[in-house]
Design a protein around this nucleic acid. Sequence first.
DNA 1: CCCAAGTGAGACAGACCTGTCCTATTCTTG
DNA 2: CAAGAATAGGACAGGTCTGTCTCACTTGGG
Lengths: 185, 185
Amino acid sequence: MTVEEQKSPTKERTRQAILRAAIGVLSANPGAALGEIAEAAGVARSTLHRYYPDRATLSSAVGAFVQAEYAAAIRRARLDEGTGLAAYTRLCGELIEGRDVFAWWVRGEIDDEVPDENDEDRMVTALVRRGHADGSIDPLLDAEWLATHIWCGLFAAVHLPEPAGRSPRETGEMCLRTLVKAAAA
Amino acid sequence: MTVEEQKSPTKERTRQAILRAAIGVLSANPGAALGEIAEAAGVARSTLHRYYPDRATLSSAVGAFVQAEYAAAIRRARLDEGTGLAAYTRLCGELIEGRDVFAWWVRGEIDDEVPDENDEDRMVTALVRRGHADGSIDPLLDAEWLATHIWCGLFAAVHLPEPAGRSPRETGEMCLRTLVKAAAA
DNA sequence: CCCAAGTGAGACAGACCTGTCCTATTCTTG
DNA sequence: CAAGAATAGGACAGGTCTGTCTCACTTGGG
């Protein structure tokens, strides 16, 4: 069933452009018109509809894309190495790095089915519990909270930089420092 | 010019109900239809239009309402008492208490003019700088960042509680602990 | 060079939301 | 109780967005 479709590299690039544009535009304004997304992607509205027939299809495609990025970030963070806090720190760093994409979950479309309790989330809560056990993570802050808490930092990191005269890099640093200090024992 | 209009208590109550409903509905879905807001307020759409002729009027009324609540929270936090961190802690506590209202700024309408750099924000950044001076607040985290960072915590506190089996009170506690630990020197 | 796949541009009907208006009904207040 | 104020409910025109369709144009691979 899940045959890997062989797509021309050109089409694949266009597909990616549309997804990226959708994340950007819809994160800023979840109710944005499809034409606005098409314009941001540098593509005609009819082309967008050819790739994603309707808004729901586009929305769930974006959801899947972001989910995949999340899984990749978790893989890169190597959650099973070092203390719980060390792994938590690596994870936060990865997510901050890709905050433009993960902004989707902070301020994207809302009514797409939330895939609560997926494997990735379970890995994160397990990681936090490991940190509880090895004494590196504050026992008063429970696993679900810390897992959610990461998104807070991302929210600030995405929405702050514009006004303040500070580079995205610096903002990322402060964001990471804030998240880790909060979680530490 | 700014005459205090004398309104009947009934009308005032309805007005408040509409504002509260608008905050709730629009925070969950910024593009929600006005009819949805009216329904949430237990009022006919025509009545809503009588109070607030159009969407922009409603939106800015909500903005003003939230801004007033913010000013009140800041007043209650007595920012000039104790160390910078102590005052910061009180402020976070007040904002967490009113998180349902302040959710507006995290995920409300977007295009209403952001009143950047109002008096309240200046008071907060001044407070953080005092904390830097008296050694109670982490000097590596600058004032704008910490001021913004509070809203992150609110975001999580508003959006987490539903799934997890935890009382709003407990969530608020964890949220506060997280914010304060992050800010502390 | 040619052709087929892909794209841009626009027309179009339907759906939804908005803001205005009107009327019958309900609630308040004197 | 009675007059006046306020509300619910619905009709309505105008607007925007959507999803579908068609057709002319570009482009890249054979």
